[in-house]
């Protein structure tokens, strides 16, 4: 179960951040923001093997005591970040991967909406619904 989901534009500002209401929202904002350091490092092409460059899923970015932060970057340099509770050990890697794939697909749908201006914050209701589903379902 994700506790926070974020979509970041390629200029590194947030297009969409949602976190579970129970927790302090600022904490998650900071977490997502600082995880960008690791994302940037991973996607920088200096001295990396070719294989890494094609991989969209970045995996576990870094562990904190209470949360695990995962990252994913599209070829257009849009980044997705999912934060899950550390205690949720049942969540496996390929489940996280499928969550990202769903996010990516929904994001593509949002982009295809002619009324959506790329670069604006995402206000699509169907995107919201998809994210809510990801945040509530027990994985």
């Amino acid at each position: 179960m994700a506790v926070c989901i974020a979509v970041i534009a390629k200029e590194n500002y947030p297009l969409y951040i949602r976190s579970i209401p129970a927790e302090n929202k600022l904490k998650f904002h900071y977490m997502v923001h600082t995880s960008l350091d690791v994302v940037e490092e991973k996607i920088s092409t200096v001295g990396k093997a070719l294989v890494d460059q094609r991989e969209l899923y970045l995996g576990l970015l870094y562990p904190t005591e209470d949360y695990k932060v995962y990252g994913y970057v599209t070829n257009s340099k849009v980044k997705f970040v999912i934060v899950v509770d550390s205690s949720n050990t049942a969540l496996r890697d390929n489940e996280i991967r499928s969550m990202f794939r769903k996010l990516h697909n929904s994001y593509t749908d949002v982009m295809c909406n002619p009324f959506y201006n790329p670069g604006d914050t995402i206000q699509s209701k169907s995107f919201d619904t998809m994210v809510s589903g990801m945040m509530l379902q027990a994985c």
């Binding site: 200029e11 590194n12 500002y13 947030p14 951040i17 929202k25 600022l26 904002h29 900071y30 923001h33």
Partner: peptide
């Protein structure tokens, strides 16, 4: 830093 990266929530705090 936060202003340049346009994270307004954090900047406000």
């Amino acid at each position: 830093d936060y202003r340049t990266e346009r994270w307004w929530t954090l900047l406000t705090s």
